[in-house]
Write a protein that binds this DNA or RNA. Structure first.
Lengths: 204, 204
DNA sequence: GCAAACATACCAACTAGTCGGTACTGTATT
DNA sequence: AATACAGTACCGACTAGTTGGTATGTTTGC
């Protein structure tokens, strides 16, 4: 048993798990303390407020996911379009578990708190937009390689991929199953392939 | 001044506005009463609980949006594919106002409450899935007309359109602007056109 | 010895929901 | 016509429990 993890980190992990499953407002400080195995004194020693924990958890989420995607195998192909398609495949492969386990902390929290807490909104927006930005280089390179001068920007396509994923999480929660999210990944992959002139179904 | 609207309807309208803007949990019964101009006694006379109002509001939302889309002009084209594309255009045209004004009640509430309240989850899921179902007939007809035997189902494409829209709302809230949602509509439209062999950019 | 990391007890504010009562309408009885 | 009664809509003070946050004390690592 590694109880070694310090209280602050356990609180961050608890925030990710509980906020994603129950939402920000419905999750109480007591629940967070219980899940992290700390007392209220420890909570407010490390975080000035529940909101501050939410912001810190967003930054923690951004760092964790950045590391995950930076080390993921979808960067291996030499062709930028293949990397992009492999990214969608990777996102689809990540859909293992319940909606609460696979959904995005930033998307879940920002939808609920974007008006009530500007700090939380900005922290969550940074997560989503920074991650989308990591896709732009490959999209631009793929455009050049395929001699494409599209009427859409690499940035808009990068954001569209995130919109599809966020929406897939919403529908997964509505149906309490992730199958619908996998199908949206398939549609997104097909769209990207067709954008660059690749027939995703070269049979009939 | 038509103060004539009965208390029950004013509470439903207040629920749609406040739940979409603040989320379900963060909205208090007192806030709902104040927004509707009724007292707490009236609230619990018409609804057994806050949750019951949420469910009734979901049904009300489903009826309102069904009526809006049933009477919308995108059904006019004789060609099913044109109707489908016109639907996406119509959804894009609806994006006028703040994220809270244009976002989906069902998507907002279900993301927050899908675990805490099965009744709310089912009511919201019904909104989304019933609306998606209204698109399936046109998708199927378009497949037949274009002699398409795709490896995706009309149902999955219908749900994908809803995923794109729901995700677009999430990103709109994150950036506190709807421009990003419009761009996702453009990508969705382009995808549908390409699926059926139409070059959305027949210039160069 | 001293500051950071916790723990315990507590509080004021707020929460959803309750409850006895009022006002108004329509209907049946006398 | 007068009365009695029933049903619905509504009112607002109240409560039991919960909320985020605080004040103060104790332990631990260096």
């Amino acid at each position: 048993m590694t109880k070694a993890a310090p209280a602050r980190n356990r609180l961050l992990d608890a925030a990710l798990a509980l906020f994603r499953a129950q939402g920000y407002t419905a999750t109480t400080v007591d629940q967070l303390c219980a899940a992290a195995g700390v007392t209220k004194g420890a909570f407010f020693h490390h975080f000035a407020s529940k909101e501050a924990l939410g912001v810190a958890a967003a930054e923690y989420w951004g760092e964790s996911t950045s590391a995950l995607f930076a080390g993921a195998p979808y960067h291996q192909p030499g062709d930028p379009l293949q990397r992009l398609v492999a990214y969608v495949d990777f996102r689809k492969a990540l859909l293992r578990g319940t909606p609460a386990q696979v959904c995005c902390y930033a998307g879940t929290v920002v939808q609920e708190m974007y008006q009530a807490s500007p700090a939380l909104r900005e922290a969550c927006a940074a997560c989503i937009y920074n991650h989308a930005a990591t896709l732009e280089a490959d999209i631009s390179a793929a455009c050049e390689q395929h001699r494409l001068a599209p009427d859409w920007t690499p940035r808009s396509l990068a954001l569209h991929t995130q919109a599809v994923l966020q929406g897939a999480f919403v529908l997964a929660k509505a149906s309490d199953a992730i199958a619908v999210a996998e199908q949206s990944c398939d549609h997104l992959k097909r769209y990207i392939q067709m954008l660059f002139g690749i027939d995703p179904n070269p049979s009939t």
